[in-house]
């Protein structure tokens, strides 16, 4: 079976890189996006019988064409058609981060949302109903704290579950 291709999207400073590191551990390789000076990071791992390849997209705020980073991210989703796009949200800045998530969803790709930096949001007494979010967006919403490697296991489980559903 082909490996699962996973893309990791999110705002700059949403903890996307920490999450990427937490998921892939040391098995990463770094190159450049074709023709660009923007770094492209990839990692591979196995989980529940799946070979999973994960690509870290550049940190962006929107899926428009305001910057080369945005074009790279959306071209990857449109052209490479990843099996799942993990969208990382900074739970303490939900509106701005959802603006990107909503646009990823509009691209009609399977999405799993990582509600990252949840500890900071909780410390600020921001209460997020994950169930409600998940229903409104019809995608899994997983609580993560990438810096402490919390919830990364749940996230990978959710990826595999979603893959099982869509690839049946």
């Amino acid at each position: 079976m082909n490996p699962l291709l996973i893309a990791l999207a999110g705002n700059p400073n949403s903890g996307k890189t920490s999450l990427f590191n937490a998921i892939t551990g040391s098995k990463q390789h770094v190159g450049n996006w074709p023709g660009k000076t923007i770094a492209k990071k990839e990692g591979e791992f196995q989980h529940r019988g799946y070979d999973i390849k994960i690509v870290d997209l550049p940190g962006i705020y929107s899926m428009s064409a305001f910057s080369p980073e945005e074009v790279i991210a959306r071209d990857f989703i449109v052209q490479e058609k990843p099996d799942i796009v993990i969208t990382v949200l900074d739970a303490a800045n939900l509106e701005r981060n959802l603006y990107l998530a909503v646009q990823v969803l509009e691209m009609n790709v399977p999405v799993v949302i990582a509600l990252n930096m949840s500890d900071i949001a909780e410390a600020k007494n921001i209460q997020i109903e994950r169930e409600g979010l998940s229903q409104a967006l019809s995608v899994p919403v997983i609580r993560t704290v990438a810096r402490k490697e919390e919830g990364t296991r749940d996230l990978i489980d959710a990826i595999v579950d979603t893959a099982n559903q869509t690839l049946l």
């Binding site: 509106e95 959802l98 909503v102 921001i126 209460q127 109903e129 979010l133 409104a136």
Partner: peptide, 17 residues
């Protein structure tokens, strides 16, 4: 429009001080 949609969603799912 996107932001309006998001604001509605956040209003119904997020409580903050």
């Amino acid at each position: 429009r996107r932001y309006r949609w998001i604001n509605q969603l956040v209003n119904s799912t997020v409580q903050r001080p």
